[in-house]
Design a protein around this nucleic acid. Sequence first.
DNA 1: CTGGGTGCAAAATCTTTGCAGATCC
DNA 2: GGATCTGCAAAGATTTTGCACCCAG
Lengths: 141, 141
Amino acid sequence: MHYRKSRQRERILQLLRETRAHPTADWIYKKLKNEIPELSLGTVYRNLKVLIDQGKVRKLPFGSTFDRYEAGTEPHYHLVCEQCGAVTDFQMPQYKTIHKKAELMSSFKIHSHRIDFFGICEKCQTTLKKKERRKHYGSRK
Amino acid sequence: MHYRKSRQRERILQLLRETRAHPTADWIYKKLKNEIPELSLGTVYRNLKVLIDQGKVRKLPFGSTFDRYEAGTEPHYHLVCEQCGAVTDFQMPQYKTIHKKAELMSSFKIHSHRIDFFGICEKCQTTLKKKERRKHYGSRK
DNA sequence: CTGGGTGCAAAATCTTTGCAGATCC
DNA sequence: GGATCTGCAAAGATTTTGCACCCAG
């Protein structure tokens, strides 16, 4: 896909780069609406997608698609498989260290923190390997 | 609010406790639909809310309400204010250590990780303090 | 020209709510 | 009994898409 340039896209990127907060699509839309009155929300969403595809913007993971719930009581972290989307609990020490350090370094009163690791789970690793192998022998599309 | 008990709610909680994954409301709904055919998705959502209120379940934060985007290139963590919802970047060392440790301890091939700290930002801290003070002198509702 | 980009509005997704009836205490 | 729960369906909220026209290369 060969991208052209457009005022809308350029402004969206620029706006994101200027902002320390992490805006929502709607925030961006409203912010630019004054400057580009014909702008539509659909365009904002479409351009965010393009920018993500170009690697210039990232969507904070664990977003929208669905809320997720857990009943666990023990504090723990999460492993998220980027391939199949599975979320697994992950026990790991050093909670307090990182917690305290963050509290010292910021002006926040920190109550809790959360760590998510993103990668490929064991199952998907083997699946992917199989696919890789097939590619070498199989026909090329 | 005084909660009674209901089969639906009990089963939802039980299901969440049995599951290592972090289900979506829809997953729960489908899973229980066989057992309780009259069950409706609305009830699942309502009960999840009650369970959260009772502190028995938590919703993984940073959920649905809105997707959020950022253009930053440097790796960094996030500070999220639980009062006003602001998200701020937070620079902090020790990326590699925790990353490697997690890779060793899990069977995942880890690509990246993310840390969010939740608490109260400076601004809200002062606002809250003011409110607290007022409470002592002001009229009680 | 050609294919990406845009606005608009309709559709799709996910979540919340109003209502009338069933249920728990 | 009366507040709490439920199912159902309608309404909300957020995101995606189809279509016809516009514009960059």
